[in-house]
Simulated assay, not measured.
Amino acid sequence: MVAVLSKGPERYPVPKLVGLSLGAAKAALTAANLQAGTVTEAWDEQAAIGTVVAAGLNEGEQVKRDTEVDLTVSKGREPLTIPNVVGMKLEDAEKTLTDAGFQVATGEEKFDATVPKGSVISQTTAGTTAHRGDTVTVVVSKGAEMVKVPDIKKNDLMADASKALTEAGFEVEVVWEGNLPIRQGRVERITDKQGKELKKDDELPKGTIVVIHAI
């Protein structure tokens, strides 16, 4: 009588799966007398869509015939929504964007009469999607552009004064003083809207209304 010793169940090594397409991974498992198990999808910043990024068993591991090997397949890069940072101070905007997964670039600063200096005027479209590590460009306010009051004297022609103020960047309003039967069309004084008298080289935000008090 000849005694035959059993080696136990036949074992098969798990083939290389990570980095293969799903179809190629399944074919490799079939060729190795194994089977694909559950296939799940996951976002991955490097792997192309449809590429196997993880397997339930390690490459080279010895397993029984027809063992199922679970696979994780890349869905590609995860789309992220760009947050709205308009109106935020630059440092707060940068933190918000970097916390959301983006890099931040600062475009050319611009004057803005309504957005405080150092705050964001505009940005790469908020609410749209991009990918982790993409760059969002923000434009930062330099504050209101300041312009100087031109040299306007009492008794200057109102038309000349109005032209000088407009060219300097101001809005102009005219208030007629007194109740004269004949208007001279000359400057009595100039003020801001609150009535503060203005003089040469006073600095005000561009677009400020300057009132010509005329006679």
Rank of each mutant, 00 (worst) to 15 (best):
R186I: 15
T40D: 02
A113S: 15
G87E: 08
G169T: 02
P150V: 06
Q35F: 00
A36L: 04
K196E: 13
L17V: 03
L71G: 08
S162H: 06
I152D: 01
E173S: 15
A47G: 00
T135D: 01
L20R: 15
L22H: 08
K200P: 00
L5Y: 10
G56I: 01
K196G: 01
T51L: 04
W176N: 14
D134P: 07
M158K: 15
K163W: 00
A159E: 15
W43V: 07
T124P: 08
A24Y: 02
E10P: 00
F102K: 05
Q35L: 14
D112Y: 12
L157M: 12
M1A: 13
K7M: 10
D201C: 01
G37Y: 02
V120E: 08
T166F: 01
K89L: 09
W176A: 07
V53D: 00
A126Y: 11
G101H: 05
K110M: 10
G23R: 12
A214M: 08
I49N: 08
N33S: 15
D92M: 05
T72K: 09
T129Y: 08
G37I: 03
V120Q: 06
S74R: 07
A27G: 06
T208G: 07
V136Q: 05
A32K: 07
E41V: 10
K193T: 15
P15N: 09
P83W: 03
E197D: 11
E171T: 12
G19Q: 10
K163E: 14
N155Y: 13
F170W: 05
G195R: 03
E41N: 10
N179G: 13
W43E: 01
G169D: 03
L29P: 03
P83M: 02
P13F: 01
G107Q: 06
G133T: 10
G185W: 11
E173H: 12
K193V: 15
E188H: 14
I182C: 00
P9I: 05
A161D: 03
K200I: 02
L90M: 10
S162Y: 01
P9T: 05
G101L: 04
D201I: 00
V139C: 07
E188K: 15
T124N: 08
R65G: 02
E203V: 03
G107Y: 10
G118P: 05
A3N: 10
F111P: 07
P116D: 10
S119R: 13
V4C: 07
D202K: 13
V69P: 03
E108N: 12
A3I: 09
V138C: 05
K199H: 11
K89V: 12
S21L: 03
L20H: 11
G56S: 06
E78S: 02
K148D: 09
V147G: 12
V172K: 10
D151F: 01
K7L: 12
R189K: 15
V73N: 04
D66E: 11
E41M: 04
E145L: 06
V73K: 04
D192P: 03
L204Q: 08
L29W: 01
A113P: 08
Q35E: 14
F170I: 06
R11I: 03
L5V: 10
D134Y: 08
V187W: 09
K142I: 01
A3R: 14
K64G: 03
N58S: 14
K89S: 09
V69Y: 00
V53W: 01
D70F: 00
S6L: 09
K206A: 10
F170T: 09
